[in-house]
Design a binder for these strands. Structure first.
Lengths: 261, 261
DNA sequence: GTGGGGGTTCACTCAGATAATCACAATAAG
DNA sequence: CTTATTGTGATTATCTGAGTGAACCCCCAC
């Protein structure tokens, strides 16, 4: 991200290593050693644009992370672990971190979750919206009603719906576009009515979600300014919680009206 | 790690969030919002030791990461996503990063892996040594011989041994201490002889590994300076590769001698 | 319409960390 | 013994980010 995130595998590797908390010297040294297999400080310095006298510190830093072994000879020789081992190390470390984070946040979370909220919240980004959908579905205790484009029905959302249905929540899903019923009907758990989408033609395409009649979310896909071809930031959603929340009231009425027809 | 890594869940959460690349203001803001459920800049500032004027930047940063939603009103109100969603987000992001890193490094790795290496390399730390053991076992094509303390026979090592055995590698494992045969014999894959440990009494306790008679590793458990109760940095290992490597020659002879008896 | 107060944003300073360079000591080769 | 090369430490420059303060804006009261 900082420098060139071009297709060059070396740049990619350096960027990712920096994201994992390594200094740029350490990252460059490691990439050079991966290419060399084994080498001295001079070799690394020539290949990696790292001052020779700093290769030793970089190697020490990498050794702390278990990514480089060192030969105690003169000149010192360094070697990098394999790509698989590197990935395994970081995957393990950051999975642990995520677990610790979740556990710590769980202790902090207030006992009374946002029961009544006055206003309307906004989210942008397809993944972000999916996260909210999953979060709300996970918190469902009685009923989930979801209307969605099939392209937005990701695996994570389906999993959340299935686990909700498994614990006795009444789950009802319908698609906004026609292909939905054909392709994705079987992905959904049993007992989740997949209704005709005819009623939704003409409605701005996105998602509508209602959970326990106390929490609702509405989103639309906006044709982004043409940056990336319809990728990250192309969905915007609003959501609200609480019996008296204005958005909840509106969407509740909307669902009831569609149901009555 | 920077400040106090005491048992306080708030400190833990802040530390982990910073490890995931957030600024300290963003991390503290998020923790405060998790505790509050919802709040204004003033609320956050009072609870989180963040200057009120910078809560907005912190919230924007968190919004980029999909961790905070904003209410467009005066005063602005902020809310944090749930602990589960937070963990899910970072888990997904950093798993992706690890995958990208592994793929990029794979492209860089030289075709001719360290076939012949003159010297002897050193590794310290139990996890680091286990990583090398796994890496070497994964690279085995014909034969694996491992002598180990049972406490060092972690799941990752067992998995690597099993997958090696599955692809036709001759795997032979024996324990250095007596409990090994009893407790862990069933964890090993079929056809992996688990020999009597009598021959090893008196040998410094640790591991001995030989792969394809071309790569060997030897480690010992050292009673650390008493820092943490026998945890991280209490194993040191040396390893070498290549037919003519001195360590390989020595250990090959050692294994042959023990076999002959 | 005008003045006050709280809320929001922007601009600036300072400190810590890290990149980068240099000087010197230690070692091996000739 | 000399010299080139390697390893270690000290030094400087640069940069990000924490911390602070001032200006702007809007809403409300007067």
């Amino acid at each position: 991200m900082t420098s060139n995130d071009s297709g060059d595998p070396r740049s990619i590797a350096v960027d990712q290593l920096e994201a994992f908390g390594l200094s740029t010297y350490a990252a460059r040294t490691f990439v050079a050693l991966t290419g060399l297999g084994e080498g001295t400080a001079k070799d690394v310095s020539a290949l990696a644009e790292v001052p020779r006298t700093r290769v030793y510190d970089a190697a020490a830093e990498l050794r702390e992370h278990g990514l480089v072994d060192v030969q105690q000879s003169t000149p010192k020789r360094f070697t990098a672990v394999s790509a698989e081992t590197t990935g395994r190390r970081f995957r393990r470390e950051y999975t642990r971190r995520a677990d610790a984070l979740t556990a710590a946040l769980d202790e902090i979370e207030p006992v009374t979750p946002n029961a009544e909220q006055r206003g309307v919240w906004t989210v942008t980004g397809r993944e972000m919206v999916s996260d909210r959908v999953v979060e709300f579905v996970e918190g469902a205790s009685e009923e989930v009603v979801l209307v969605t484009l099939d392209v937005l029905l990701t695996d994570a959302v389906v999993d959340a719906l299935r686990s909700a249905a498994d614990r006795g929540v009444a789950v009802r899903v319908s698609g906004m576009d026609f292909s939905a019923a054909d392709e994705d009907g079987d992905r959904l758990p049993e007992g989740c009515g997949f209704e005709s989408p005819r009623a939704w033609t003409g409605v701005p395409a996105g998602r509508l979600l209602m959970v326990d009649r106390r929490r609702t979310l509405a989103s639309v896909l906006v044709d982004g300014t043409g940056e990336h071809p319809s990728s990250a930031r192309d969905e915007t959603a609003i959501w609200g919680a609480g019996e008296t929340n204005s958005l909840v009231v509106v969407l509740k009425a909307m669902f009831a009206w569609l149901n009555g027809e």
